[in-house]
């Protein structure tokens, strides 16, 4: 069993570090399903566990690696339709030393995983993209990025779940409604979901 590193976070939370995002997903699902916690928040290589009265202990996580995962009902990829053509598309292609067509082809070909959700409600950090497409954030963040903007920063791809300031490179858009608090399941995507992008109608 691999060793876990844990740091207390205030009165009743514990930040557990793991080797990679796959391990973070597994630990998140285990903690979310089996422990009675107020909140469980996966990060890229961490899981933050907020207890109700006290912080969980590492012993509580004893069996997380050998834990049998129940079959996921939604094991199929979530398909999101996107349109390319954002204001940073050509710059990103140039930076990645490929044509715009090549960038779009490679960006569509990947099978993505929701590494975690953060920044805004329902805002997914998708990993698993083409390793050649890793543009840095914009040096000057935009004061307003529209909801639905398809964006890339480093190894992450995302779709802005609501309008607001943002520093990611915008390469397209999507009309997927990623977060609707009035839905029974407000977030379209959960950590660990598989996502495919398809080019859809503009």
């Amino acid at each position: 069993m691999s060793r876990l590193t844990a740091h207390p976070v205030g009165d009743r939370a514990l930040l557990v570090e793991v080797a990679d995002n796959a391990a973070a997903q597994r630990l998140f699902r285990f903690a979310h399903r089996t422990l009675d916690l107020e909140d469980v928040i996966p990060g890229h290589q961490t899981v933050l566990m907020v207890g109700r009265d006290r912080a969980p202990r590492l012993e509580d996580l004893g069996s997380w690696e050998s834990d049998e995962e129940p079959a996921r009902a939604d094991a199929f990829p979530v398909v999101l339709s996107v349109t390319y053509g954002g204001p940073d598309l050509d710059t990103v292609a140039e930076r990645c030393r490929m044509s715009t067509e090549e960038l779009v082809r490679r960006h569509l070909a990947a099978e993505y995983t929701v590494a975690f959700i953060g920044f805004a409600p329902g805002f997914p950090y998708l990993i698993g993209g083409d390793p050649l497409i890793q543009p840095p954030r914009r040096t000057e963040p935009r004061t307003r990025v529209p909801a639905g903007a398809l964006a890339i920063a480093g190894e992450y791809t995302s779709i802005y779940s609501k309008a607001g300031p943002g520093g990611w490179q915008i390469v397209g858009s999507s009309d997927a409604l990623l977060f609707d608090p009035t839905r029974e399941s407000p977030a379209l995507l959960q950590p660990g979901d598989t996502v495919r992008l398809v080019e859809g109608p503009a």
């Binding site: 939370a13 930040l15 928040i41 990060g43 890229h44 953060g118 920044f119 950090y125």
Partner: peptide, 29 residues
């Protein structure tokens, strides 16, 4: 790498000037 945040976290951006997070805390930072 982005990790979970709680209200009360004292986070330090590159400027070195701390920010104490409150109720509407970004969930990851």
């Amino acid at each position: 790498r982005s990790e979970g945040m709680v209200p009360g976290a004292v986070q330090v951006p590159p400027s070195g000037q701390p920010i104490v997070l409150l109720a509407d805390v970004p969930t990851t930072g």
